[in-house]
Structures are given as C-alpha cells and as structure tokens.
Design a binder for these strands. Sequence first.
DNA 1: GCCGTTTTCGGCCCGACTGTTTTCAGTCG
Length: 567
Amino acid sequence: MDKKTIIKTLERIALYMELQGENPFKVSAFRKAAQVLELDDRSLSEMDNISSLKGIGAATGAVIEDLITKGESSLLVELQQTVPSGLLPMLKIPGLGGKKIAKLYKELHIDSIDALKLACEEGKVQSLPGFAKKTEEKILLEIVNLQSKPERTAVWQIEPIVDLIEHKLASIALIDKFSVAGSYRRVKEASKDIDFIIATSSPQEVREELLKILPVQKIIAAGDTKVSVTLDVEVEIDVDFRLVELKQFASALNHFTGSKDHNIKMRQIAKDQGKKISEYGVELADGSVEHFESEEDFYAYFDLPFIPPTVREDGSEFSKLDQLPSLVKLNDIKGDFHMHSTWSDGAHSIEEMVEACRVKGYSHMVITDHSNYLKVANGLSKERLLNQIDIIHSLNEKYTDIEIFTGTEMDILPDGSLDFEDDVLSQLDFVIASIHSSFSQPQEKIMERLLNALKNPYVHMIAHPTGRIIEQRDGYNPDVPTLIKWAKENGKILELNASPYRLDLNTEYLKLAQEKGVPIAINTDAHHIDQLKYMDIGVRYAQKAWLHKENIVNTWSLEKFKEYIQK
DNA sequence: GCCGTTTTCGGCCCGACTGTTTTCAGTCG
C-alpha cells in the first residue's frame, strides 16, 4: 500500500459523502486527513504512528488501517454500493453541489449526467422543491458547456488574456487601482479562472463599463461587489472581478490571491488574537475594522514577514518563514544564458538582444542559437557558428557595461551523439545541450542521450530537461531523479526554462535538484526581445520550488560565473 | 469527523450571489 492510494481513497470517500448530502464538516474532515498525509514528507513506512497525527482520528485512522491491512477500505466499498458512481462527474456541473445532486438522485433517481440532461429536457427537474425553471435551464446549459470549455487553462494561454484585460482596465478612468489575483498571481501552471481586484468608488458604473468593453460571452453573476463573466478570447475562460473601496484593496487582493489553505491559516492566526479577517479588512474585538496600505502591512500587522504570492499554497509555508529572505528575487538576476537571434530562429539581431539585456541591467548574457541539426530553426553550421563567435568578440569591444558570452543551444541527436565536435565546443564560452527530436524513444535511449551530453566536458547545461509543454505534451519522459544525480556527478547545470509554455523543470524536480546540490539556471529562451520579460515568471516559479538565490547561477556575479564556466 | 488546558460539546474562515423563497439554502471561491 502506498501513500498516494491512501490519500486518493480519503478524498474519494469525501466526494461520496458530499454526494450523500453529508455534513460539510464531516466531508472536510476526510479531505483534511488526506492533506495531512500529503503534507508529511515521510514515506508510509517511515510513519510509525499515523493515527496520532493531528487531523487523523478514529474514522480516518480506521480507513488507513483498513487499506494497509486489507488493501481496500470497507467504508469506501460501502459508499460505492450506496452511491452510484455516475453522480461523481455531476459535481463538475457549476451550480450543482452534493446536496442538490443527492436530491436529484433521491427524488428522480437521476444517476448520471445523461439522465440529468434527459430529465431537464422532459421538464421533470423544475417540479422538484428547491429547483425551478431557471435552475433547470441553467443545468442544461452547463451540461452543454461542460464539453466545450476546458477544465483548466494553461498559464501561457492565460498570460495574453491577462494582458488584454489589464489594458482594458487601465482605460477605465473610474478605476483607482487594479491587480490580477488568484492562482495566476501565484504562478500556478494552469488555472480554472482569472481573478481581478478593482478599487473604485463607483462600482455600478465600473460594472457596466466592464460588461461593455470586454469580449463577454456570458454573464455568470453581476452584483455590486462581484462581476463574473465568461470571456471569449482564443479560449473561453471565466473571469471574476471584485469591486472594492480603495482602503479595502490590500485585504481583497490578499483574500482573492489565496490559496484557500493559506487564507484559512491566516484567519486562524487572526482568530487566536481575537480578530477576524475578511476580504474587506481585519475586524477587531470592538467591532472596528483595520485597513492596510499594502499586503506587506497586512502581514506585518500579524507579526509576519511578507509572504510572496508564489508560496501561498498548502499552509506549510508558515513553517518555512525563515527561508523567505533567501528565496530568489527578480532583482537578484544578473544575466540570461539562453536566447536566440536572427542567426537561427530569433526575431532580433544579436545587437538588439544585447541592447535589450542592457535595459534589463544585466552584467552578462549568452547568445545561444540553435545548432546545425535543427534545420527548421535555421540551426548554425560549424562555419556560421565560428563566424558568430568573431562577431560577438568584436561586440564585446564595443560594450563596457555588459559581457556577451558565446554559446550554442546544441542538439543531442537521436542516436545520442552531439551536433558539434569537441574542437568547436572548446571555442565556446557556454554550451547548452538540448533534445528537440525523437521524443517517443524508450526512456533508456533518452537517458543514454542525456548521459552522453552530461559526460561531455564542454557541455555546461541541459536546457528544458523534460521537453514538456504545459497542459499540452509531456515531453520525452526522462527519469529526472537519475538525470539530477548525473548532473551532480558531472558538475552540470540544469535549466529552469522560464518560457510560460515550458516552466521546465517543474517545481517537484527543482526542489529535488536543489536538495541534491545541482545548480539551476533560470533562462528565458527568448526568441524575441519581448520574451526577455519571462525572467520574471521564471523567478517567481522558482520561488514556488523554494529555490534559494545562491543555488541559481543567474544570481552569481560575472566573476563567479566566468570562473564556473571556465573550469 | 476532529479538536481541545478556560471547552468532551460546540464550533469548524468568511462572505457574495442566485434562485428559490417570503427569510434562506446551496454553491462558490
């Protein structure tokens, strides 16, 4: 029996109980028990007395005991016999929760989405007490939407939508201040919806304006403080706008940035002090309400350091507050080591890239165009690369405030060989090795290719180590823990590719790499000067993995970097 | 269902919106 199965079972029991219309606190007790196990770093065999953990009691402990001794939970089996499994997907229909579904099943014997659709079409649902015509129409609509709207939208799809909304909000004069919040602000890889906080003293006018100037496909709710819409821009996505007074802005931003677990912890801390946190401020025992200029002030009020949105997740951040000052920040970044120019598939000349990096205030940078093999990207031949080296050397004569290093993003070929010979590589300052082909090879072959690159003395770094595109493809499925081990043994850097398409390595592996002492480089892989801004999301993603600045190659001084790549 | 040293019973984060209702339940984040 493994821990994951136990966690899944507890969560599943919670779902089934929800569908029975159970007491919500009872349901959440099972979810909490699952979370307690999830948050515990130990493996199952290392945990000797699970039942003594806080949050695990008699009933949840019995489930765990059952799973360990019998391999299944009698409680879950029992629930599965009383609750049809077809009810589970019905929870995905917005507006339907456990109680309504339980009622539909009990009164109308509806046990699947298909049966529900039929019952709505036949007008049977509107006759139930608590349901009426509008509810029935809404359910039908949502069932149809369920198929058309993706459940989660990737961060790279959300980013341009957020840009668009920010642009529109900036044009509304009655808005004093606004910010994106929610999971996007926490740099989750994918989100269900987008949240915005808007400070205004004219909520009604702003609401009307929003509905007018945004590509609204559907209005979900439009109250005085909350406007919820489905937007139709490339993808369909729900967006929530919260309208508050300026003095409430920091509290609202904090509340709607979440996460839910983070908020619960904060509210518990407040409660212990006799205070009450809401999205509008902090209510004191005497009924007066405290407001804050900024989130920094809000945390300081509870004697806490500013906790960046990126680490506000499962609540475990509160036990790691001492690490916050060490986390990498954008202004620690001194260079970007993976970018392309017009020599391969980039949009700008080397000089334009240099100028853009100077604007960023970097002290050093590396030009890493593609190699020969990648024909579609106009990869450089040996001759063109040697020519590029000369040009970069002469550019270095021109600039005194930034050092440009020569480099390549060299393909690791399908047979495992490298695209340039050592005599070429030895002339470069910084060598990146990447896989761009034959993703479907067996894992042994992929690992053989990676090992070959890691063993080459001239290679410094493996770029986008798994090849994933968020929510779109998994990549070439390397055995990452082994890759990390090999990187350590061979003294190589692993990349955190900051492109929002990739964010590769992911947080789980970044944590492992840091633990094993493998240096990480955060690189934008920019193909356009605008993409150099991805350093920001890359750094914030690194915070999610609790990466410390000293482990990030980009934070090292020019001298230290030079020393490192020359050894 | 779980918790607890002012509690072994009563509370569990807190509030908005909708659709059903004549004062509130259910859902959502």
